[in-house]
């Protein structure tokens, strides 16, 4: 009698599964458009759709905190950084015909082979594993207690890494150290100043 409830067949999906599947299709479609579109700015905007869809998937998996962190950091800052990068490298606004390199078909073959292999393996391995979504498992309460109780040391190491990344990005993106002012102020000898100031 309870056999039908225990086996959880794929042919009678629950509501959460249907929503997960539809959101997954949207996410996957947005990801495919992101890597195939020829308009560079549109790629960044479709990336927003893909990352937002993933945030919805996290919500469906009852991982609320990760979902909101995903929205804040990925959609909020990473995509904005990417858009700034596109603008600062003067990416063409319209369709650029050379968005893909010459090894496109090789890439397609590699990605297709990897997809077939991974999907076959994953479906075969986790065909019968069932996620119990009855009680939430990723609230801010639970995750905060876990991060600040068991994972404090990686958390602090991560803050050091973020500081290092901040300093590194500033050093890398400075315009030739202090030589820019020197060039502007002293036009007589610009070559030496431009050459030796790179590392700061």
């Amino acid at each position: 009698m309870t056999l039908a409830a225990e086996t959880h067949g794929f042919l009678s999906p629950t509501g959460v599964e249907i929503v997960f599947l539809l959101t997954g299709l949207v996410t996957l479609g947005a990801a495919v458009i992101t890597v195939t579109t020829r308009q560079l700015v549109h790629a960044a905007l479709w990336l927003v759709v893909a990352l937002g869809g993933l945030a919805v998937e996290y919500l469906l998996l009852t991982a609320e905190f990760v979902a909101w962190v995903q929205v804040l950091i990925y959609v909020g800052s990473v995509v904005v950084l990417l858009l700034f990068g596109l603008m600062l490298t003067r990416a063409p606004i319209g369709r650029s015909p050379d968005a893909d390199s010459g090894n496109r078909w090789v890439a397609l073959g590699v990605a297709g082979a990897a997809a077939v292999l991974l999907v076959t393996l994953v479906v075969d391995a986790f065909r019968t594993t069932w996620i119990d979504l009855d009680e939430p498992k990723g609230t801010t309460d639970l995750l905060g207690a876990s991060v600040f109780r068991h994972w404090v040391l990686p958390f602090e190491a991560l803050s050091v890494l973020l500081l290092a990344a901040l300093v590194g990005a500033i050093v890398l993106s400075r315009k030739d150290g202090g030589s820019a002012e020197e060039v502007a102020g002293n036009p007589a000898g610009p070559v030496d100043a431009a050459d030796d100031g790179g590392e700061g």
Binding site: E17, T27, A31, L60, D98, S101, L118, V119, V123, W130
Partner: peptide, 28 residues
């Protein structure tokens, strides 16, 4: 929910990203 749904979606997303890394020209 079956674990296969998120696992398959993650595998497919990874492969889409793999294609993008190999096929795109612009570094961004």
């Amino acid at each position: 929910m079956h674990l296969a749904y998120p696992a398959v979606l993650a595998a497919l997303l990874f492969c889409v990203g793999l294609y993008g890394v190999l096929a795109r020209r612009n570094a961004i």
